[in-house]
């Protein structure tokens, strides 16, 4: 398949990225060739194959419900580009 403008713009939006026109052309070409290559998987019959999301079959790794101490707020905020009143600051969110 080829990646057209509509699809690349949709992927930009989902990914919260904005490409320049030049980057967009390159991305279209690169993604198209990668996806065409990936389509090679259609040669495989996976009709009865279960999807494998984890590389092993372990299950049930739990933590006991015990409250511990939280982090110093200064440390949580120390890398924040903008902060105010102990909070991260962002442009206003609109409803």
């Amino acid at each position: 398949m080829t990646i057209d403008n509509k699809l690349i713009e949709y992927l930009e939006e989902l990914s919260r990225l904005r490409l320049t026109e030049e980057e967009k052309e390159k991305a279209k070409a690169d993604l198209s060739s990668i996806i065409n290559y990936v389509d090679k998987l259609n040669e495989l019959d996976t009709e009865n194959t279960e999807a494998m999301s984890h590389p092993f079959d372990y299950t049930n790794n739990f933590r006991k419900d015990e409250a511990g101490s939280s982090f110093d707020r200064e440390l949580i905020l120390m890398n924040a580009p903008q902060k105010k009143n102990g909070c991260f600051r962002v442009p206003k969110t609109v409803e």
């Binding site: 699809l7 992927l11 990914s15 919260r16 990225l17 904005r18 690169d30 993604l31 996806i35």
Partner: peptide, 21 residues
Amino acid sequence: CNSRSEGFGMEVKRRIMLGSF
């Protein structure tokens, strides 16, 4: 959008978009 577009290099962006796809 601007933070991510300016902060990530092209290979990273390519893979993120492939992942979204």
